[in-house]
Design a protein around this nucleic acid. Sequence first.
DNA 1: CACCCCGATGTAACCGTTTACATAAGACGG
DNA 2: CCGTCTTATGTAAACGGTTACATCGGGGTG
Lengths: 346, 346
Amino acid sequence: MRNATIRDVARNADVSVATVSRVFNSSGIVSEPARARVLAAAADLDYVPHSGARSLSTRRTDTIGVILPDLHGEFFSELIRGIDLATRARGLHLLLSHSHGDPNEATTVLRAMRTRVDAMMVMSPYADEGVLAAALGGRTPLVLLGSGGDAGGHPRFAIDNHAGAYAMTAHLIGAGHERIAFVSGPAGNIEAAQRLAGYRDALAAYGGLPEQVVVGDFSEQSGARAAGLLLAGPRPDAIFAGNDMMAIGCLQALREAGLKVPDDVALAGFDDIPISRFLDPPLTTVDVPIAELGRQAVESCAEILATGAPGASRTFTPELVIRASSGATYSDRQDSRSIEEEEART
Amino acid sequence: MRNATIRDVARNADVSVATVSRVFNSSGIVSEPARARVLAAAADLDYVPHSGARSLSTRRTDTIGVILPDLHGEFFSELIRGIDLATRARGLHLLLSHSHGDPNEATTVLRAMRTRVDAMMVMSPYADEGVLAAALGGRTPLVLLGSGGDAGGHPRFAIDNHAGAYAMTAHLIGAGHERIAFVSGPAGNIEAAQRLAGYRDALAAYGGLPEQVVVGDFSEQSGARAAGLLLAGPRPDAIFAGNDMMAIGCLQALREAGLKVPDDVALAGFDDIPISRFLDPPLTTVDVPIAELGRQAVESCAEILATGAPGASRTFTPELVIRASSGATYSDRQDSRSIEEEEART
DNA sequence: CACCCCGATGTAACCGTTTACATAAGACGG
DNA sequence: CCGTCTTATGTAAACGGTTACATCGGGGTG
């Protein structure tokens, strides 16, 4: 048996298809009795408008496409949660995929998605958003998530990685640490580069403390490896890992080396993933309002779609979360409240 | 400027729309020169077929809809990851939403999705899948994720919660614990009920050890509350939490009460979320192959779509992961390898 | 009473594909 | 030299909505 179509409903309700359509779109004027008959017939036939036909006719899909570099871990599940809440609130659908962090793959996925969505949200920390925009053919609105290369005029919702890393480094210095090592994210990753720069600038600003950098890849294993490397030389007072997963890896390695955190070596991370506060010791880190970022990015998409206007970018200033691992004498939450800056579109 | 249509491509390539369509669907026979002209024209115009029009014509969307009760935490991000990998491998798209765990909301979401997808995958631990199937109008294939009520003939991919809880309880008994308390998931949740039953059956099988059950809601806070309640009475030898998040809550509460895990009280969880092995002590738990479950559920969908056949269900037997928190004298991984059972469809 | 306006509804063109069927052009055997 | 059989291509009718425009029946106004 075929699905019921608008013509079936029209016939059963003894009206024209136009009237049925008007009822379902709350557009135009329909008399009360006609509306009631239509709704009854639709319920009776279990009619649901065919989204393909509708999108063919209206040139809208009511769907937002999201491409993330990865789907692994709590960071992304938080982001997806924020995005899903916002799309739902707006009656939009969410088409999801990931790109294995590979820009070429992102392009492929983008092309496959582009006729199915009204707008795209992409997180691609590996520069060159020009390629992405090109893959969209310039017709589908694009909103960027997280830091990256030149936004090319597209709205971007990102974290101020530099400010976060700077604040954390300052905190570690304030706690009395002098030899502060940094475990960086992978080369080419722009978020990683920004965090590294924040660390360096803070060291420089506080009297030129010596820097020591080991490169990881944001994974737990690379964090453990990095800690191993750092312990091979003269022991640092503190290790600042470029994200929490690497901090966890460091923690494991330090524990295995028989060192106490924070007494022997202090430790800090970045992201404030939910695990962090359950570690022993609880991890000092930088809190990133990730679900909120996703939510606002969706709002931005919706606004672009509604108004056609290009939409504003926004950078979220993250918040320091001080816990036991950094060896600060005070343990309350430092009050660097989330200051958000509105930027004019370039 | 309009997006290019198949007619634009046909005109530029000096062929008919049928030929263009044949090229893009690798169907029918097209001469080499014609194919080349079509591809050139398409590339030139940046042509991408309109998915709405295509789905109108073919009655397919190449999309699978997924509804989860929640998107919070690592459990779901793992599941989504598994699902996404499989859909991608099959050239399918993934439309995602969640239902706040509410069956009514699940129904609403289902209705909104049903014309946009070829098949639905739903995780709804609150019984009554009949409602879900009804919301689909019986035309869209449905695959169930996780345990629930009567599957009504739909394939289901689930964990053997009973076996997992039974094995864990047996392990705790084997480690010498006698007063073993259980922190259950919420009433009405079928997965929770199955785990509780596994715990009870194991106690009974091992000489009728006394049971002690506190009800939580799978959240960390409820775990802490439950531990508080348990410590108010005579102290149990071991606490078996119905999932890892509650185990974490217990761990916090026990620590605050000045008790050592596992020396004063042993602790175990369920799910083996990635956090678990980073806790102090690392948590003994039950590993659930969640990404794999998602992957196979997608394969099942794809098979149903390809063959029209109803598809088989599958129950995954989870694996015990023994770490320090359970106070077992041996610490190696018990060899209860993942035995998977194929079930005939009901 | 002629006219206009307005609310309610219907008609039919259009959105961009796929595909059944028709057609055309050679090749080939008789 | 004419059917017949391939191979390659074109024509046009769906698919199921939306919506511009036409129509129609009253009610008010001059």
